[in-house]
């Protein structure tokens, strides 16, 4: 039997903005489950194809965007793409191995950046912007990876007549239609509407304080997110320009004569540079996550 306690012991409240590890797990699981469910529908929804214009819902972006806008963006962003892999790809036997990894990184990155930009989920424009940024990053990086597959997969691709142009056109169309359908119709609009309705309602169900302008995401996620967004955008731009060069598409007077000097080998430098920027960005994001985790641990 324990002796009667002499002094009253007290356990004080932790900072309510600080997520406990179990709450992180909750956000992760919730985001995973919901996006997994959403993806089952996109599997079933039909695609409309009219010439080069393909109309399909590649995913219901609003679901994870609402999650990253309302909850801690990092854990929600990590959970959502896993939901897609688990519920659709693995269970439906559509698992594509390494391909899943790139998809995971693209989407998680896009969602994290998008979610971090949101200051107040009840502001519709912020959430809508987050949705567009998320889809822009995901589909942009995805498009570049697809293009590089052609580069690696086809011998001397830049010399094959019509190939670079066709790839650019295909990827360009795909990107545009994805952005409009997934990014806006099934992204920005429903996300803005749902996030505002759910804000302040769903958080208490999970024992959390709602996120708003006075209680921003802990750490410096926002600043970092802006940096990552810029870096991704630049690396995308550089990759696209690399392809444009290969396709002999010339923009005004911008006609680099170093091409003649160094030969097409320089193209690889361009592609390589964009890859380095991308890897650097991911590494920075990871390091940041680790740092903020360390900070959290210290504060606990």
């Amino acid at each position: 039997m324990t002796e009667p306690r002499t002094a009253t012991r007290k356990r004080s409240l932790p900072d309510p903005n600080q997520l406990s590890s179990s709450q992180k797990l909750m956000v992760f699981v919730l985001s995973m489950t919901l996006f997994g469910l959403a993806n089952i529908f996109t599997e079933i929804l039909p695609e409309f194809r009219l010439g080069p214009v393909e109309l399909s819902v590649s995913y219901l972006a609003f679901v994870p965007v609402v999650m990253v806008s309302l909850f801690h963006p990092l854990y929600a962003a990590l959970g959502a793409p896993l939901g897609e892999i688990v519920f659709v790809d693995l269970l439906m036997g559509d698992f594509s191995g390494i391909g899943e990894l790139e998809g995971y990184i693209q989407l998680a990155l896009g969602l994290y950046v998008g979610g971090s930009l949101v200051r107040d989920p009840s502001r519709k424009w912020q959430v809508a912007a987050a949705a567009m940024v998320a889809v822009l990053i995901d589909k942009g990086v995805g498009g570049v990876i697809d293009m590089s597959k052609v580069w690696v997969g086809v011998e001397d691709a830049e010399y094959v007549d019509g190939l670079p142009e066709s790839i650019l056109v295909i990827e360009g169309f795909a990107f545009a239609s994805d952005f409009i359908i997934s990014g806006i119709l099934f992204g920005a609009i429903p996300a803005a509407y749902l996030a505002a309705r759910l804000h302040g309602k769903i958080e208490p169900l999970m024992g959390m304080t709602p996120r708003d302008a006075d209680h921003p995401v802990p750490g410096r996620a926002r600043k970092n997110a802006a940096f990552i967004a810029l870096a991704v955008f630049l690396s995308l731009a550089s990759a696209v320009f690399t392809f444009l060069e290969a396709a002999d598409v010339k923009f005004g007077v911008w006609e680099p004569d170093f091409l003649d000097q160094y030969g097409t080998g320089f193209l690889w430098v361009g592609a390589g540079a964009s890859l380095v920027v991308l890897i650097g960005t991911v590494a920075a994001a990871r390091a940041n996550a680790r740092r903020s985790r360390a900070e959290n641990e210290k504060e606990r």
């Binding site: 179990s22 797990l25 909750m26 699981v29 919730l30 489950t33 919901l34 469910l37 959403a38 529908f41 219901l60 609003f62 679901v63 609402v66 099934f186 429903p190 509407y193 749902l194 309705r197 759910l198 309602k201 769903i202 169900l205 999970m206 024992g207």
Partner: peptide
């Protein structure tokens, strides 16, 4: 209907997740 149905679905799943994680 699909988009609207996610509103109750998100709330119900949040409740469910709470017990699961606990």
């Amino acid at each position: 209907a699909l988009v609207r149905s996610f509103y109750p679905m998100m709330l119900n799943t949040a409740k469910r997740t709470r017990t699961t994680v606990e």
